[in-house]
Design a protein around this nucleic acid. Structure first.
Lengths: 224, 224
DNA sequence: TTGACAACCGAACCCATGTTCGTCTATACT
DNA sequence: AGTATAGACGAACATGGGTTCGGTTGTCAA
């Protein structure tokens, strides 16, 4: 979470107001109420800053829902008893930095500054112990990952790494074919065996020199 | 305050729902949501009973304010503290009540005991808005769900329901074949089309009489 | 039978409220 | 100067969601 002091004064005031209003009324304020009480004259500016606060991890929003705000925790410096709760955060927020499909390499986090808008909350067990700061997510485009039992729209959670242990599922870029694929990794010395997750499909064997590991697959999430 | 037991069953359900929804979301439900979740078909009836509850002292309302509800205290019989603590939780715990494979019907939660050991934490977005109390999880055994793009070991999150809308992914028990399958549901009048998630596989058509819906698939989780 | 009343229904109505968009300013970098 | 970007503004838009109203059903007592 971004440092509270790094937020703009406006944003801090907004958080304080939201906390206070919610405590006073039992339900959160509207965008217009937030604006009126923090000296903002336009609903769009409130909306803009609310999204900033979501990105910074201070609250969550429900789209198209009136008063659909929720603080993720107490506002620093307040005496609010607003559910301190999940300080022990059993989940974390990781960025969805782009899409994955067969014909292009897998994006990796510092390839470019990613769109902060798209974050996903995942429970820690989906990260398999990986430090959340090393994890990122990609959304699958197209049906090219079918042999990995992964569909269009699935969200694949990766850990950034360029080596793999046998049995890991990895994203590899095959430099000779200019193709990305998700397979189980098995180093057999002179060659690498890439085993599809689909039990009826045959492995492929590649030269280690054309096999660039781009990340390790930690988990897959599918919304229906 | 009027005795809680003097309230109608509906009114008690409404209070319970309001408390639970507020705890789950951080803001109160709308009149329509209350109706949908307590079996009331008209907003005016919800409104009517909300006013009754105000008279009875159980809640206060703000006129012309969406979600302008507030409970005056914990609802008798509920675990109010738990709700308060979970107030900002963006995830919930749902039970893993068993396994799913082709040759047996899908287990359905009986309201009784779950093994506390087998619970899984999921972020709310995996439930697609479903009340967490209506959700449960099953672990996939065997490779029989391959046509649904689901592997051994995947965790499938269901919602308990016996009907489906077109386009839902459902677990169905085919009484003539004694077989469970996961497919997209399309009612075509005289027959039901069950479409595999796998894009290269053909749908099957079944008689509505042999097609027993056991639950709706909300999401799938795969740990690697 | 009739009237009063509690409970309920469905649809219409319309304000409440989130979202989008074109525009503007200030600042920083090239 | 020219361009990019963050922050802000206000108006228009579309939908969310509370309110109202005419009508129905069932119960109870006069």
């Amino acid at each position: 979470m971004k440092d509270f002091n790094k937020l703009s004064e406006r944003q801090r005031n907004m958080l304080r107001y939201i906390e206070k209003y919610t405590a006073d009324h039992g339900y959160p304020p509207t965008i217009r109420q937030i604006g009126e009480n923090t000296g903002i004259n336009s609903t769009s500016v409130v909306n803009y800053n609310l999204n900033k606060l979501v990105q910074a991890g201070y609250l969550t929003r429900s789209q198209h829902v009136s008063r659909g705000l929720r603080l993720t925790g107490p506002v620093p410096g307040s005496k609010g008893k607003v559910a301190a709760v999940q300080a022990s955060a059993a989940f974390s927020r990781i960025p969805i930095i782009g899409h994955i499909f067969a014909s292009e390499p897998v994006p990796v986090p510092d390839d470019y500054s990613y769109d902060e808008d798209s974050m996903i909350e995942v429970t820690k067990d989906l990260l398999g112990g990986t430090d959340p700061s090393q994890a990122y997510a990609l959304k699958v485009k197209g049906d090219s990952m079918i042999d990995a039992m992964i569909r269009e729209g699935d969200i694949v959670i990766f850990r950034k790494q360029e080596t793999a242990k046998n049995g890991d599922m990895v994203a590899v870029w095959l430099t000779d074919k200019s193709e990305t694929t998700l397979k189980y990794f098995h180093n057999e010395g002179s060659r690498i065996r890439l085993q599809p997750a689909h039990p009826h499909m045959e492995p492929i064997y590649v030269d280690p020199r054309v096999c660039k590991i781009e990340g390790k697959v930690l988990s897959v999430i599918r919304h229906i």
